[in-house]
């Protein structure tokens, strides 16, 4: 039986929004797909609580986020390394975790990355636009959470406890990315204007770039050495995919994010691979980045391996939850 649980938000961090994996069939009408900047973490978090990957979650960027649930709930917090406490006790990230009714949950002190994902077993009740709850601030669909807001969740999770252990212990094959505090290497494939920019590939693979303070969900702006293409003339504005690495007129690189403007006319020297984009969603100002060229086939192979990891986790969660008598969302398998 399902019931409605409310989460009272006491602190909302710097920017916290309802979020999911984004829209399909919206870009043809001028609306960017949008969705979680770190798609991997959002998908894993929802899988860990028995939800479909595409379910709604909360994306938390910076600061301190805290809430208190009205009833027992099951949560998973993924994304950047951060401090998670439940009722004052430290709790692990990347694992299904029970929160008793009335216990305060705090997510704070993000290190290395910039975004946390809070996933809750059940369906988060929130507005949708073109089939997704992902915000589109430009179109007035802010989806922002503020202190004092209530998050409503319709859940079949009715609370449980273990006679000896307060928390259930799961051993799940969770694909946790290694962020690390050092230099992040971004896999890229050739872009259309690479050949018109002699030496750019050698320069980008041998240089360090620093994520600048003007970076956001539209794009990461990287400070570092660049070369400008020669003899191109004006490029007619055309569609640009997420991950396109542009060289604007100024001396910087821009890696387009999920909320990019859909068309642009800057030279594109490379594309971040789809598999590399989740990591880019965790890169904040000051992060140092370098590039690694891969073949298109390797880019897809890497993505296929990621998908395999998610499938293995889905199977394991399904088995563990079934054995423990925990509810799984009906549409937990894709399509």
């Amino acid at each position: 039986m399902k019931r409605l649980v409310t989460l009272d938000v006491a602190e909302a961090g710097w920017l916290s929004t309802y979020q999911d994996l984004g829209r399909t069939n919206a870009e043809a009408m001028g609306v960017p797909s949008g969705g979680a900047a770190d798609q991997h973490s959002a998908a894993v978090g929802n899988i860990l609580v028995g939800n479909p990957r595409t379910g709604a979650c909360i994306e938390i960027m910076g600061g301190r986020f805290s809430f208190t649930p009205s009833n027992d709930i099951l949560i998973a917090v993924t994304g950047t390394p951060a401090e998670l406490t439940i009722g004052g006790c430290t709790a692990p990230l990347w694992t299904p975790t029970r929160v008793p009714a009335g216990a305060k949950v705090t997510i704070a002190r993000a290190t290395e990355g910039v975004r946390s994902y809070l996933c809750i077993a059940g369906a988060i009740h929130t507005a949708h636009f073109m089939g997704s709850c992902a915000p589109d601030a430009r179109m007035g669909f802010a989806q922002k959470l503020s202190a004092g807001d209530q998050i409503s969740v319709l859940t079949a999770n009715s609370g449980y406890s273990h006679p000896y252990f307060d928390n259930m212990l799961f051993r799940l094959p969770v694909p946790i990315p290694t962020y690390g505090g050092g230099i992040w290497t971004v896999d890229v494939v050739d872009g259309p204007e690479m050949n018109a920019t002699p030496g750019i590939r050698e320069l980008m693979t041998s240089s360090l770039y620093t994520v600048g303070g003007r970076s956001d969900h539209v794009g990461l702006r990287l400070d570092g050495p660049v070369l400008h293409p020669e003899g191109l003339g004006e490029i007619t504005s055309h569609g640009v995919p997420v991950g396109a690495i542009e060289i604007p007129h100024s001396d910087e690189l821009i890696i387009l994010g999920r909320y990019r403007t859909l068309t642009a006319g800057y030279p594109i020297v490379a594309f971040a691979t789809t598999a590399a984009q989740s990591m880019l969603g965790q890169a904040g100002p000051g992060r140092r980045i370098t590039f690694n060229w891969v073949a298109a086939a390797d880019a897809v192979r890497h993505l296929r391996y990621r998908e395999h990891e998610l499938n293995v986790l889905e199977d394991a969660v399904h088995s563990a939850f079934t054995a423990a008598g925990l509810p799984l969302s009906e549409s937990a398998s894709p399509l």
């Binding site: 829209r23 399909t24 797909s33 569609g239 995919p241």
Partner: peptide, 12 residues
């Protein structure tokens, strides 16, 4: 195919 982006002289 997941989506498409229309340009004046192109289609992504």
């Amino acid at each position: 195919a997941r989506d498409a982006v229309a340009g004046l002289e192109s289609l992504l």
